[in-house]
């Protein structure tokens, strides 16, 4: 159980670092809002249209934002030369990933929960009745974004052009998450809201596949 106690300590560190400055959260919320507003100029955001485009647009903005906000995860350790210390401090390197992964999921979910009411007002959709189901969709989707995102931020931190590289590695890989999250969100915002079991199962499957891959191969990503 050393894995979980290590993870808990590291998670505390990640959350403390962020909540001291809250830089990541504030910039990401503003960034997503900017993208959503800019996108809305590309079509007529009337009732039917916003129901058709809204969910996809929101998820696309989240994906773009994630590919930028997941960047500092390992870059910070690299810049401060703390990666070796971090590696020495845990018995299982997976704990480092698990802590960063949970922290990233928490950050993503917080951003999304802050944005959902604004999105609902702007696009005139009703979210209150289906709020718990929406949280489930956003949770599974955010985990799906955060797993490869955390893994690839360890890769991009060691390469040149890292700011551009992470989106390039991450976004095509997240196509299934984009489709499944958009479809399940659209299903919930529909006139007859329905929980899309098929897509939720798919999201959960995606999360399991990549979490297993990270568990198996994560330690090699941090080799000196």
């Amino acid at each position: 159980m050393a894995l979980f106690s290590n993870t808990a300590v590291l998670l505390g560190k990640e959350l403390r670092t962020e909540f001291r400055s809250r830089e990541l959260l504030t910039t990401t919320v503003v960034f997503i809002l900017t993208i959503v507003i800019l996108f809305s100029f590309t079509f007529q955001p009337s009732g039917n249209e916003s129901l058709r485009f809204g969910p996809g647009l929101l998820w696309l903005a989240i994906l773009f934002a994630a590919s930028l906000m997941l960047q500092p995860g390992f870059l910070r350790e690299q810049n401060n030369d703390t990666l070796s210390a971090l590696r020495l401090s845990v018995s299982d390197p997976f704990a480092i990933f698990l802590a960063k992964l949970v922290a990233n999921t928490v950050f993503l979910l917080l951003t999304e929960m802050l944005l959902l009411p604004i999105f609902a007002v702007l696009f005139n959709v009703h979210i209150l009745a289906v709020f718990p189901q929406l949280v489930l969709v956003f949770f599974l989707g955010s985990v799906g974004v955060a797993i490869p995102g955390t893994a690839f931020s360890a890769i991009s931190a060691q390469a040149r052009m890292r700011e551009l590289l992470l989106p390039l590695l991450l976004l095509p890989l997240l196509t299934p998450v984009l489709i499944a999250s958009t479809e399940s969100t659209a299903g919930l915002l529909d006139a007859q809201p329905a929980l899309q079991g098929k897509w939720l199962g798919f999201l959960a499957g995606f999360d399991v596949v990549f979490l297993t891959a990270l568990w198996l191969f994560g330690e090699y990503l941090l080799e000196e």
Binding site: P148, A151, F152, I155, V209, F217, L221
Partner: peptide, 9 residues
């Protein structure tokens, strides 16, 4: 490692 993730995808 990226290739492994990509192929799984």
């Amino acid at each position: 490692l990226f290739g492994i993730f990509a192929f799984l995808d």
